[in-house]
C-alpha cells in the first residue's frame, strides 16, 4: 500500500445528504444487504468498496430506487434524502431519480445523437423553455462532463459512435443535465482503459464541487484517489465506514485490512 499517495483533504463537518438507517435488502429469500447504516455527505465523494457480490452495487441502486424494477427485490429500513424517506408511499421514484442521477458500469448512451442524449433528461423534465435554453443546458452539461471540446463540432453524430471513455463522460454529462443533487456511479471506469479512467476520475473530482457523488469501485487505488469517504462492504454487511485516508492506512476492522492488503476478495 506504499505506492498510494493520498491527497491532502480538508474534512470539515458537512451536511448529511443521504442517511441510511438499518437498511435490509432481500432478493427473494437471499438477504443481500444486512442492516446497513451510513451517512453520505453533500459535496463529497463517497466510495463503496468490497469484493464482488458484497452488495455494494445493490445498496447503491437502493439510493435512487433502481431496484424497484426488479420484482423480487424488497427493501426495508429508512433511506432519507435531505431528511425525507425516499421509500415513502407518496414518493414518485421518477421524481427521485431526477434528483439522484446515475451513471452505469457499462457506458450506455442512447442510440441517438450526442445532443439528444444530453437533451433528453431536460426535455422530459421540462427544464428548458425553448431551444436556446436547451442548447445552453446541453453545452453546460457537456462542459461539466469534460467532453465539450471533443464533441462540440459533431453534436449530431450518434452517441454510440464515441470511444468508450467518451461515451462514459457523455453518460455523466447526461446525468448532470437534469440538475441532480446526488450522482450515483456504479463502477464507472470498469469498462475503460487507464487513460479514459484518469479522465473520468479527474471529472469526478470536479463534480464534487456541486454534487454529492457516490461511487462503487473495484479498484482500491481508485477509491483512494477520488474519494474522501470510503465504505467497505463484505458479504452484505457494511464493515467499516470512515475517512478514506484512515480506512486505507489504519483500518479498524481486521476484514478491511485483509481486503485492502489483498488477502480476501
Amino acid at each position: 500500500m506504499n505506492d498510494m499517495t493520498f491527497v491532502e483533504r480538508t474534512v470539515d463537518t458537512r451536511q448529511t445528504k443521504i442517511a441510511a438507517k438499518n437498511v435490509q435488502v432481500y432478493y427473494g429469500e437471499t438477504h443481500a444487504i444486512k442492516d446497513v447504516n451510513v451517512e453520505i455527505e453533500d459535496k463529497t465523494v463517497t466510495a463503496f468498496i468490497g469484493p464482488s457480490g458484497c452488495g455494494k452495487s445493490t445498496f447503491l441502486r437502493c439510493l435512487n430506487r433502481m431496484n424497484d424494477t426488479i420484482d423480487i427485490c424488497r427493501v426495508q429500513g429508512d433511506i432519507l434524502l435531505d431528511g425525507e424517506d425516499i421509500y415513502d408511499k407518496r414518493v414518485d421514484p421518477v421524481q427521485l431519480r431526477a434528483k439522484v442521477g446515475m451513471v452505469f458500469q457499462k457506458p450506455n448512451p442512447f442510440p441517438k445523437s450526442i445532443y439528444d442524449n444530453v437533451a433528453y433528461g431536460p426535455r422530459i423534465h421540462g427544464l428548458a423553455k425553448n431551444k436556446a435554453e436547451l442548447d445552453e443546458i446541453v453545452e453546460k452539461s457537456l462542459r461539466r462532463g469534460a467532453i465539450w471540446d471533443e464533441v462540440k463540432d459533431r453534436l449530431d453524430a450518434p452517441g454510440t459512435g464515441l470511444s468508450g471513455g467518451q461515451q462514459q463522460r457523455l453518460c455523466i454529462a447526461r446525468a448532470v443535465a437534469t440538475e441532480p443533487e446526488v450522482l450515483l456511479m456504479d463502477e464507472p471506469c470498469s469498462a475503460l482503459d487507464p487513460i479514459a479512467t484518469a479522465q473520468v476520475e479527474e471529472l469526478i473530482d470536479d463534480l464534487r464541487q456541486r454534487y454529492s457523488v457516490v461511487i462503487v469501485t473495484h479498484s482500491m487505488q481508485q477509491a483512494a484517489r477520488v474519494s474522501q469517504k470510503t465504505a467497505f462492504f463484505h458479504l452484505g454487511n457494511l464493515v467499516e465506514f470512515g475517512e478514506t485516508g484512515q480506512i486505507f492506512t489504519n483500518p479498524e476492522d481486521p476484514r478491511t485490512e485483509s481486503y485492502i492488503t489483498g488477502r480476501i476478495g
Partner: peptide, 9 residues
C-alpha cells in the same frame, strides 16, 4: 431502459 430510468424517465 436503465439509462432512461436513470435520468428520471
Amino acid at each position: 431502459r436503465d439509462a432512461a430510468l436513470g435520468v428520471g424517465a
